[in-house]
């Protein structure tokens, strides 16, 4: 393999915006919709996912040359499930209230496509440093995606952000935003917005060039 693909730094940056897992690749949709009714659960979720992603990428990259493909998937799953269990127990022990709010969505990280995709696409072929940079970038991108949706929903739904009031007292809380339909509507509109901004920028770039 002559062409080694993007460097570690490029991968790190790629994960955040150009290949944002939420808006660009539409990966990991369950947590994106389910835990974004407040900024705090969204950030906790992003943290837990980041922990699992970084650890899984690290282990996968360490053993990348030692395994045949069909065994590899098995080992990925084993790795991911182990780290998710650890993350889940830590949440239960140190943030019991938050663990109750997140409920089944913490163990559902096991089947989060972002982690399997990053392990398979990147970490199983790259050295440890690159794999870690990739995981870090992806986690930040995912956190950004979750935080943006959660902020919109929490502000419109309750008039507060992280419990602190941002909109005037007179704001009629849009209850629907913190309910399931609000998740679909917010993500749909934000996706449209990102697409639209991307298209507009491309157009502007084309005119200049």
């Amino acid at each position: 393999m002559v062409d080694s693909g993007p460097t570690a730094l490029e991968r790190f940056i790629n994960g955040i915006l150009p290949e944002n897992p939420t808006y660009r690749q539409l990966l990991g949709m369950c947590p994106t919709l389910a835990v974004t009714n407040g900024l705090k659960p969204a950030l906790t979720m992003a943290g837990a996912t980041a922990f699992v992603l970084i650890c899984a990428n690290f282990i996968t990259s360490l053993i990348r040359n030692a395994l045949k493909p069909h065994l590899r998937i098995l080992v990925f799953t084993l790795t991911i499930a182990t780290f998710v269990t650890i993350a889940d127990r830590f949440l239960q022990a140190f943030m019991p209230a938050m663990s109750k709010v997140l409920g089944p969505y913490v163990p559902l990280i096991i089947v989060n496509c972002i982690i399997i995709a990053r392990c398979e696409v990147c970490a199983s072929k790259q050295p440890v440093g690159t794999a870690l940079a990739d995981a870090l970038g992806c986690s930040l991108g995912f956190a950004l995606g979750l935080a943006s949706i959660a902020s919109v929903r929490e502000i419109l739904g309750t008039g507060c952000l992280l419990g602190a009031r941002v909109l005037p007292e007179a704001w009629p809380n849009w209850g629907i935003m913190v309910l399931p339909p609000g998740a679909f509507l917010t993500l749909g509109l934000l996706l449209g917005l990102v697409e639209w901004a991307g298209a507009a920028r491309k157009k502007a770039g084309g005119n200049q060039g």
Partner: peptide
């Protein structure tokens, strides 16, 4: 245009 595909499905 920007809503085609996933956007409109989510809405």
């Amino acid at each position: 245009e920007p809503l085609k595909g996933a956007g409109i499905t989510l809405l």
